[in-house]
Simulated assay, not measured.
Amino acid sequence: MTNSLTAGFLSIFFWFLNSVAIAQSVNIPLTDGSNGSPLVIEADEGLEWIPKEGKYIARGNARASRGTVNLRADELIAHYRDTKDGSGQEMVRLDAKGRVKIISNNKGEKDRKAKTTVTGDVAVYHVKQSVFVLRGKRLKLVSPQGTLTAKDSLEYWDKNQIAVARGNAVVSQGKQRLHADILTAYISEPQVEGTRKKGAQRVSRVDAFGNVHVSVPNAIIRGDKGEYYPDKSVATLSGNVKITSNKNQLNGDVARVNLKTGIYRLVGKRVKGLITPGRTR
C-alpha cells in the first residue's frame, strides 16, 4: 500500500481506448475526456467487434497495457456508445473477467523500482463514476508498503482518491495485521522536498470500520473503529477498546499500536485491567 497502491491499481482509470492491437484499431475516448494516452489491447484468440451491442471483446489471455501498467484477464470487454454530437464513440465501461491481474512497475523511494500487483476474479471500471471494482475469491493488493485483502470487493474511486476494501478486510505489514469489516485508504501526492513537483502517490491514512482488531505478538487489540498510518506503521483504535494478552484483559477508550514494534498503549479517561495471577504479557 504505497505510492503504487494508486499508481497501478489505478492508472487504468485515466486511459483512452485510442488504439486496439490485433485485427483492427478503434478510437473510444473516456466520457470525461480527461486523458489522451493510448490503451493497447491484445489477446491470443483475437478481437471481436459487436456494433449492435456496442462492445469490443478480447478473448484468450487478454492484455491491456499503458506505460508501466498492465491489465491481464481471460477476457476483456469494452462497452461504448456514440457521442451525442455524432463525432465518434466513447467508452462507458470496461469489464475484465477471469484471473484478473493488474501489475504496475513504478519508482518508489530513492527511484527504486516499486511493483504493485492487484488480483481478483472479475473487475469492472465504471467511467462516469470513475470507479474500478474488483470481486472474487482471490482479492489481494500486494505492494512494497504492505498487503491488502478483502472478501467482498476492492474499489478505487478516482475522483475522490480513495480505495475501499469490503468484507473481512485486512491490511498487513510484516507479521502485524489490522482487520475490519471495511478499510478505506486515502491517497495523496506529497510535494517533493525543495521543489514544486508532486511526488509519487502513496497512502496517507487507512480508516477501519466494524469489528476492528489488530494482532501483535502476544496480544489482540479490538475496537469499534480505527486509523492506520502506513508511513509510521501506527494504528489508533477507539470505541470499546479491549486488549487481550493470554488471560489478561485491559479495557479503555483509545489504544495506540505500533505494528512494527508490537508495542501498544492504552489511553483515555476510563482504563480498566483484569490481570490473572501467574500470567505475564
Results as ranks from 00 to 15, higher is better:
186 Y>P: 03
186 Y>E: 02
186 Y>F: 15
187 I>G: 03
188 S>C: 02
189 E>Q: 12
190 P>G: 02
190 P>V: 00
190 P>Y: 00
191 Q>A: 08
192 V>K: 11
192 V>N: 01
192 V>Q: 07
193 E>I: 03
194 G>H: 01
196 R>Y: 01
196 R>N: 13
197 K>L: 07
197 K>Q: 08
197 K>P: 00
198 K>D: 04
199 G>N: 02
199 G>S: 03
200 A>L: 04
200 A>W: 00
201 Q>V: 02
201 Q>F: 14
201 Q>H: 07
202 R>P: 00
202 R>L: 06
203 V>D: 05
205 R>M: 10
205 R>W: 00
205 R>Q: 10
207 D>H: 06
207 D>K: 08
209 F>G: 03
209 F>I: 00
210 G>C: 05
210 G>Q: 07
210 G>T: 09
211 N>Y: 07
211 N>E: 11
212 V>I: 07
212 V>R: 05
212 V>F: 07
212 V>A: 04
212 V>L: 05
213 H>Y: 15
214 V>D: 08
214 V>N: 09
215 S>P: 00
216 V>E: 12
216 V>W: 07
216 V>F: 10
217 P>E: 07
217 P>L: 03
218 N>G: 05
218 N>R: 12
219 A>I: 11
219 A>C: 09
220 I>E: 07
223 G>M: 04
223 G>I: 08
223 G>P: 05
223 G>V: 10
224 D>G: 13
225 K>N: 10
225 K>Y: 12
225 K>M: 05
226 G>S: 09
227 E>D: 10
227 E>G: 07
227 E>C: 01
228 Y>L: 15
228 Y>N: 15
230 P>Y: 01
230 P>E: 01
230 P>A: 02
230 P>K: 02
231 D>G: 12
231 D>S: 13
232 K>H: 07
232 K>T: 10
233 S>L: 11
234 V>H: 11
234 V>C: 05
235 A>R: 09
235 A>N: 10
236 T>C: 02
236 T>N: 08
237 L>N: 10
237 L>R: 04
239 G>Y: 03
239 G>K: 10
240 N>M: 03
243 I>C: 10
244 T>N: 14
245 S>G: 15
246 N>Y: 06
246 N>H: 12
247 K>L: 11
247 K>A: 06
247 K>Q: 13
248 N>F: 03
249 Q>T: 13
249 Q>C: 03
249 Q>E: 14
251 N>G: 00
251 N>S: 04
251 N>L: 12
251 N>T: 06
252 G>P: 05
252 G>W: 06
252 G>N: 03
252 G>Y: 08
253 D>M: 08
253 D>E: 15
255 A>I: 06
256 R>Y: 09
256 R>F: 09
256 R>I: 15
257 V>G: 06
258 N>T: 06
258 N>F: 11
260 K>R: 14
260 K>G: 13
261 T>S: 15
261 T>C: 11
261 T>I: 09
262 G>W: 04
263 I>A: 13
